[in-house]
Nucleic acid binder design. Structure first.
Lengths: 246, 246
DNA sequence: GCACTTCAAATGCCAGACAATTAGAAATCG
DNA sequence: CGATTTCTAATTGTCTGGCATTTGAAGTGC
């Protein structure tokens, strides 16, 4: 692991990159302890604060964890799906909000990915996943639910559907796509009529999943996508015609 | 933005979280300049190195960028898809290598997601995407190609297919799934026979995309998935029977 | 008006020190 | 001898203070 003091890049960034590469390449294995900060500062011939900045960069990506005390230090972290979820969601959310991605594009991607999960979920979902879906549908039927709560329940419903596929890689990839849409969905006000239609479509999906009918699940998802797109279109059109709503 | 000095968590982690939340919530907008390190250290009542560690954490996630000089400072970064790709790929790669995800599971997820892109790609791909696919197929037919180069070309082929869908959200999500599989694929040695079969299936895919035939594209992808799974199975079986290969 | 110089602000980096935490070793007591 | 307590060393977390480097902007001279 070498760094170039004459490089234009920050020393801490170079050090972080060197260690990250070693982790990705497998030179440093899970739970292995890195040298202490003092030793690293000697090895790289930089000061301890600089080493610390590098370690914090890695900690921000959950590549290492640190522990204080006599046997403490920095350890290569076993990156778990649970840890990776929030980062994935944060990144996806910001990508959507900062890049003027149209609602249509985001929605298309989300439902396309979700349809990809549908066959697996229909065949493999546990009774637990199905129960979660039914419970969320029931919650969505409650009158007096705020729009935010309705959206949150919507996300929970779809996550249960995706998790039902029993493939952690799919769940991880989908988490970003599904949750990142929530801020966009929260811009929509749902009338009682809208909610009834969505609940009906959710019920179609749950029924199809219960019957282990992969095709019907995909078809119901497509219907829900159309409904969502139509709803968003009308909301954005109304907002455009009288922009002084707020 | 407040932090709790008595909290067990690192001060720099708390500060980073506070600023990150402000960015995600929209309190800090793109290209806005954060207070200088000296000002932040006053606001949070911590020292400058602590503030710097917090800023490095955010920089590691591309949430901010820093600039030296008179008008320098830390700025809220417009997170672009280009910047997010490498992080997504690194994370996905580590998730697969550290969590004993079976080849089968990863492969299933990858092809499921790719099939989700197929209909869009068949209908929208530019001539450029198609040309890239043909070029990679041609490269894969060259004798004397190393296994690594063959895999790299394979990734390029599939990325062209995915990018052909013209949906940046899909491309972003798929980048992780496709590229993260490369280390797993690199464990496989491809015989000339294997390569010929894969090239033939790639040609089927390219032909279907050229005809704008979404169904045929999905079918060809499924055939390729089966071939890949079968190939991996035989390789792993052979390795298991005589484990002292290396 | 243009080129050059100077300046100030900000980040990047460093040295040294002290505080807090923690596991293990050592000492003490029953 | 065993259990408990205390001590100690190692390590990270934080602070103070300072210097180096970069860079835009203001000033200066021609």
């Amino acid at each position: 692991m070498k760094i170039d003091p004459a490089s234009p890049a920050d020393l801490s960034a170079q050090i972080a990159a060197a260690i990250r590469d070693a982790i990705v390449a497998g030179t440093l294995i899970v739970d292995e302890r890195l040298p202490s900060e003092a030793e690293l500062s000697e090895q790289f011939d930089v000061s301890r604060p600089t080493v610390r900045e590098a370690l914090k960069r890695l900690a921000a990506q959950s590549l290492i964890r640190t522990q204080r005390g006599a046997t403490g230090g920095a350890f290569v972290n076993r990156l778990s799906f649970e840890e990776a979820y929030p980062q994935q969601i944060t990144t996806s959310t910001l990508l959507l909000s900062m890049n003027a991605v149209s609602f249509e594009t985001a929605c298309e991607a989300r439902y396309a990915l979700e349809r990809a999960c549908a066959p697996f979920s229909a065949n493999r979902r546990s009774p637990d996943h199905l129960a979660t879906m039914r419970a969320e549908i029931h919650r969505q039927s409650q009158p007096g639910l705020t729009d935010e709560a309705f959206c949150a329940s919507d996300v929970a419903f779809h996550r249960a559907l995706v998790d039902g596929a029993g493939n952690p890689v799919l769940s991880y990839q989908l988490a970003g796509a599904v949750e990142a849409m929530q801020p966009l969905m929260n811009m929509i006000t749902f009338s009682a009529r809208d909610r009834a239609r969505i609940v009906a479509l959710h019920t179609d999906i749950a029924d199809a999943v219960e019957r282990k009918d992969a095709d019907a699940t995909a078809i119901a998802l497509t219907a829900l996508e159309l409904e969502t797109q139509k709803l968003a279109e009308s909301v954005f059109a109304a907002r455009a015609s009288k922009p002084a709503t707020k």
